[in-house]
Design a protein around this nucleic acid. Structure first.
Lengths: 354, 354
DNA sequence: GTTAGCACTCCCAGCACGCGAGTGCTACCG
DNA sequence: CGGTAGCACTCGCGTGCTGGGAGTGCTAAC
């Protein structure tokens, strides 16, 4: 089909033209004509010559015309080439960097951090900010504490190895003394430290069948409470923050009602978004999915710029932005990159609460 | 201007016509013509006669024409009259009632309940569900507990008189023994039970100035931790859940892009929504605000159906739906009413966690 | 290889036209 | 005197047509 090494397809003039077309199109949103390229002065060529170059670029699949007698717009492939070979990322401004630092520094609860991160990202990029945290299935326990908070309610506090804190309330029938609760907490913390919630549950269930448990009343209580504690925590819902959908409403790319509608619906279809983000979790660096690469079925002219966050051994989730293909990648890529790094550092330092 | 006692304006025929116009318009979304009224068979009158009645209703401000030679649509005032005098609320179906009961029964954390409530409401009504919980300024404390969860992190668990549980993580410099933490918790729970967070804070600050505190090291620690615990909890952000905006996207009422845009923006402007909902907090029963009554500046054709929830002495917030003026009030009003009651009962029973 | 010129294509805004729906009014009927 | 039939009038909307403008592709000349 096409040559694999895209970088060799194009001579330097063609690259310059492609770059200029994309830059102009990103800033105006309009199809770019040969004339407007000639006028920009960067080439010293007439519009007729540029037309030839553009026709070549179209043949190679980097540009397309919405209709005959319209200018050219970049294709998915054009953007892809631009991002990989032509773009020079803009450094963050001090204000951007400080905004991110501040936002992340001041939050304690992980929910808060993620929520703020997505809305900050949305504000800085003027696109839709998304932050995704998958289920805690691989959550490994460092310690567990139990606190009586009402007559028949006990709060269980789970601290994970990664510093994430989860708590839940358990209803109980039998009474527990303060002392018992402390003992149970200590016992579980010691015995099950480093295990996943699922493993703990299975272990506890197995223990109920052992002979000793039948006689040791304290152990019975421990098991009962322990099972309650880990039940229903593990398959906690995926958390997905989608912030700033209004910013996208204003973009001229969504002039007509149908497109607007489709877009809003797509952004609210969380399952699909989660699918996409989950499939990105394996990759390491900054990821940019363009147009059809995103697997958005209803809406095809969207791009995703995202990066994994969390400690390097135990990635937590994805953070990024979604916007029309026509976006300022040069500005947005470093933004997402930086935020994800700051976020990861914060999480490695630990002690974030859920 | 207009007579205050609206119910006396209209004879029984006019009422019937108004009711029919509104019912038809709610179900079709189209302006209603005299002919379609005549055809419905409920009147035994010709379209000409109905035209006369409709002209009267228009003069009185209950109906309006989008333009000459179009049928009539109800005005805000028309809907208002309909709701107060003409509508017969439809009883909930068993499925609806069960869905609500289930949803509320199964949740433990108040965040969850509210979140699910709004999305459930949205699903059942096919409108936008909203749930609002104002700041916890009037949150009165029943007990406080402190648990060490990491080297320099302590979790504080606040249980409110209304059973709501709030927790936060505090970073500490000085170390606390398990025993100390327990003592501090007990002390604060006893001394400050029944006070608001704000009152507790002020009291603690006052105590630092007392002579005794300067010498009693334990008291110093208690005060330090207590202040940390209540700080920044009180002015916790207003919680506002807005769920199901996509359902509204599909309604034919928002055919054109501009209206769609305005609507989405309005629904995302949380401050405005909070204002509106806050102003409803004083009222007791089900509240219906129609069109211009809602104070929505950008969008004027919206209605709000909402009701307060929480215990009768200490109302917690508002729950309801937002949709186009043209909505099935007869079905939605009982829905909101019932959900708010179930929610309130759940909260009165207590032990909800935040 | 570059460029000027020209024919061709297509979009789009504006306009006129006719149709259909719905009203208001008036005259007539029981 | 309330109800009704009939008719003229108004308005919105869809349709088809047209002219202008923008942009391209191609060709021939430099």
């Amino acid at each position: 089909m096409q040559k694999l090494d895209l970088s060799s397809d194009l001579d330097s003039r063609a690259r310059d033209v492609l770059r200029e077309v994309i830059i102009q199109h990103i800033s105006t949103g309009e199809p770019i004509s040969s004339r407007s390229l000639a006028k920009c002065g960067r080439f010293g060529l007439s519009s007729a010559s540029l037309r030839n170059v553009m026709a070549d670029l179209e043949d190679l699949g980097y540009l397309a015309q919405p209709h005959t007698s319209a200018g050219r717009i970049p294709t998915d492939r054009g953007y892809r080439f631009f991002i990989e070979h032509l773009m020079t990322s803009r450094a963050l401004t001090r204000r951007e960097r400080e905004a991110i630092d501040d936002e992340v520094r001041h939050a304690n609860e992980i929910d808060d951090v993620l929520h703020h991160a997505s809305s900050l990202l949305s504000k800085l990029s003027d696109q839709v900010g998304i932050v995704f945290m998958p289920t805690l299935l691989q959550f490994t326990v460092r310690s567990m504490d139990f606190v009586q908070i009402a007559e028949s309610k006990i709060m269980c506090i789970l601290v994970g190895m990664n510093g994430v804190v989860v708590n839940k309330i358990i209803g109980t029938r039998q009474p527990f003394s303060r002392d018992e609760l402390e003992k149970i907490g200590r016992y579980i913390s010691v015995e099950f430290s480093g295990m996943t919630l699922d493993a703990i549950r299975r272990q506890l269930v197995r223990m109920t069948e052992e002979e000793r448990a039948l006689h040791d009343q304290m152990l019975q209580k421990t098991i009962a409470l322990g099972i309650e504690a880990v039940n229903d925590v593990a398959p906690v819902e995926h958390e997905l923050y989608v912030e700033g959908t209004s910013s996208i409403l204003m973009k001229p790319d969504f002039a007509d009602a149908a497109a607007l509608r489709r877009t809003m619906l797509a952004l609210q279809e969380k399952e699909k978004l989660i699918d996409i983000l989950e499939s990105c979790l394996d990759e390491d660096g900054l990821q940019i999915l363009i147009g059809s690469e995103t697997d958005f079925t209803q809406v095809h002219n969207f791009s995703l710029v995202a990066r994994r966050y969390g400690s390097s051994q135990a990635p937590l989730g994805m953070v990024g932005i979604i916007g029309p293909m026509r976006m300022e990648y040069a500005r947005i890529a470093p933004l997402v990159d930086y935020l994800s790094r700051v976020l990861s550092r914060k999480i490695e330092e630990g002690e974030l609460q859920q």
